[in-house]
Amino acid sequence: EPIEAIAKFDYVGRSARELSFKKGASLLLYHRASEDWWEGRHNGIDGLVPHQYIVVQD
């Protein structure tokens, strides 16, 4: 079951695997890939989301 998150800041992906998004964007998170990253989805694209840039919705 994906988790919803909201972007705290704009983020520009630094590689093809990283998602880019704007502050306030809604993201879906699948699972924690590491301490710093989530596997997630934004605008229909799957990729990595940096933990420091999002607020996970409970």
Results as ranks from 00 to 15, higher is better:
1 E>Y: 05
1 E>T: 05
1 E>L: 02
1 E>V: 04
1 E>H: 03
2 P>Y: 15
2 P>H: 15
2 P>Q: 11
2 P>L: 15
2 P>S: 15
2 P>V: 15
2 P>N: 15
2 P>T: 15
3 I>N: 04
3 I>D: 04
3 I>Q: 09
3 I>H: 03
3 I>L: 14
4 E>S: 10
4 E>W: 05
4 E>D: 06
4 E>V: 09
4 E>C: 05
4 E>F: 14
5 A>Y: 04
5 A>V: 10
5 A>H: 02
5 A>C: 13
5 A>T: 07
5 A>S: 08
5 A>I: 04
6 I>M: 11
6 I>A: 07
6 I>D: 02
6 I>V: 14
6 I>E: 10
6 I>H: 15
6 I>Y: 11
6 I>W: 07
6 I>T: 13
7 A>D: 01
8 K>A: 10
8 K>W: 05
8 K>G: 08
8 K>F: 05
8 K>I: 05
8 K>E: 09
8 K>M: 10
8 K>V: 08
8 K>C: 09
9 F>P: 00
9 F>G: 14
9 F>K: 14
10 D>T: 10
10 D>F: 04
10 D>N: 13
11 Y>I: 02
11 Y>N: 07
11 Y>V: 10
11 Y>M: 03
11 Y>F: 09
11 Y>S: 03
11 Y>C: 03
12 V>E: 15
12 V>C: 13
12 V>H: 14
12 V>K: 07
12 V>A: 13
12 V>M: 07
13 G>Q: 15
13 G>W: 02
13 G>V: 02
13 G>K: 15
13 G>M: 10
13 G>N: 14
13 G>L: 02
13 G>R: 09
13 G>E: 08
13 G>F: 02
14 R>G: 12
14 R>V: 10
14 R>F: 05
14 R>C: 06
14 R>N: 10
15 S>R: 15
15 S>Q: 15
15 S>A: 11
15 S>Y: 07
15 S>N: 14
15 S>D: 14
15 S>I: 06
15 S>T: 14
15 S>H: 15
16 A>F: 05
16 A>K: 13
16 A>D: 06
16 A>N: 07
17 R>I: 07
17 R>T: 14
17 R>D: 04
17 R>Y: 14
17 R>V: 06
17 R>H: 10
17 R>A: 11
17 R>W: 05
17 R>K: 02
17 R>G: 11
18 E>N: 02
18 E>G: 03
18 E>F: 09
18 E>C: 07
18 E>H: 06
18 E>K: 05
18 E>V: 07
18 E>A: 03
19 L>Q: 01
19 L>M: 06
19 L>F: 03
19 L>V: 11
19 L>P: 02
20 S>Y: 03
20 S>V: 03
20 S>D: 14
20 S>H: 09
20 S>E: 05
20 S>I: 02
21 F>C: 01
21 F>P: 01
21 F>V: 03
21 F>Y: 02
21 F>E: 02
21 F>M: 05
21 F>L: 04
21 F>T: 01
21 F>I: 06
22 K>C: 08
22 K>R: 11
22 K>P: 07
22 K>M: 09
22 K>F: 14
23 K>Y: 05
23 K>I: 04
23 K>V: 06
23 K>C: 03
23 K>R: 08
23 K>D: 05
24 G>H: 15
24 G>W: 04
24 G>V: 00
24 G>A: 06
24 G>M: 05
24 G>E: 11
25 A>F: 13
25 A>M: 12
25 A>R: 07
25 A>G: 11
25 A>I: 03
25 A>S: 14
26 S>V: 12
26 S>K: 05
26 S>Q: 11
26 S>E: 12
26 S>L: 13
27 L>G: 00
27 L>A: 00
27 L>W: 00
27 L>N: 00
27 L>S: 01
27 L>Y: 00
27 L>V: 08
27 L>Q: 01
28 L>Q: 15
28 L>N: 06
28 L>M: 13
28 L>I: 08
28 L>W: 08
28 L>Y: 11
28 L>E: 09
28 L>K: 14
29 L>V: 09
29 L>N: 01
29 L>C: 05
29 L>Q: 00
29 L>K: 00
29 L>I: 14
29 L>A: 02
29 L>W: 00
30 Y>K: 14
30 Y>L: 12
30 Y>G: 06
30 Y>T: 14
30 Y>P: 01
30 Y>R: 12
30 Y>W: 11
31 H>E: 14
31 H>W: 08
31 H>K: 14
31 H>A: 14
31 H>D: 14
32 R>V: 04
32 R>G: 02
32 R>C: 04
32 R>E: 05
32 R>P: 07
33 A>C: 11
33 A>S: 13
33 A>M: 10
33 A>V: 11
33 A>K: 10
34 S>W: 03
34 S>Q: 10
34 S>L: 05
35 E>T: 05
35 E>D: 15
35 E>I: 07
35 E>F: 13
35 E>W: 06
36 D>P: 06
36 D>G: 13
36 D>S: 13
36 D>A: 13
36 D>V: 10
36 D>I: 08
37 W>V: 06
37 W>D: 02
37 W>E: 03
37 W>G: 02
37 W>K: 04
37 W>N: 04
38 W>F: 02
38 W>L: 00
38 W>S: 02
38 W>R: 01
38 W>P: 00
38 W>M: 02
38 W>H: 02
38 W>Q: 00
38 W>A: 00
38 W>I: 01
38 W>D: 01
39 E>K: 15
39 E>N: 13
39 E>M: 11
39 E>H: 11
39 E>I: 03
39 E>V: 08
40 G>L: 00
40 G>W: 00
40 G>T: 01
40 G>E: 00
40 G>C: 07
40 G>F: 00
40 G>K: 01
41 R>G: 06
41 R>M: 05
41 R>P: 01
41 R>S: 12
42 H>G: 11
42 H>M: 06
42 H>A: 12
42 H>K: 08
42 H>F: 14
42 H>Y: 10
42 H>C: 12
42 H>N: 06
42 H>T: 09
42 H>W: 09
43 N>R: 10
43 N>F: 11
43 N>S: 09
44 G>R: 07
44 G>E: 11
44 G>I: 03
45 I>A: 10
45 I>D: 03
45 I>R: 06
45 I>S: 13
45 I>E: 11
45 I>C: 04
45 I>G: 12
45 I>Q: 15
45 I>P: 02
46 D>I: 11
46 D>R: 06
46 D>N: 09
46 D>T: 06
46 D>W: 07
46 D>A: 12
47 G>V: 02
48 L>N: 06
48 L>W: 14
48 L>H: 07
48 L>G: 03
48 L>T: 06
48 L>V: 08
48 L>F: 13
48 L>R: 13
49 V>F: 03
49 V>R: 00
49 V>M: 03
49 V>T: 03
50 P>I: 04
50 P>T: 02
50 P>G: 11
50 P>Y: 03
50 P>V: 02
51 H>P: 03
51 H>S: 05
51 H>R: 12
51 H>C: 03
51 H>D: 08
51 H>E: 03
52 Q>N: 09
52 Q>I: 11
52 Q>F: 11
52 Q>P: 10
52 Q>C: 13
52 Q>R: 12
53 Y>C: 12
53 Y>H: 06
53 Y>A: 13
53 Y>E: 07
53 Y>N: 15
53 Y>W: 13
53 Y>D: 08
54 I>K: 01
54 I>N: 01
54 I>Q: 03
54 I>S: 02
54 I>Y: 03
54 I>M: 14
54 I>E: 01
54 I>W: 11
54 I>V: 14
54 I>F: 04
55 V>A: 14
55 V>L: 10
58 D>L: 02
58 D>W: 09
58 D>N: 13
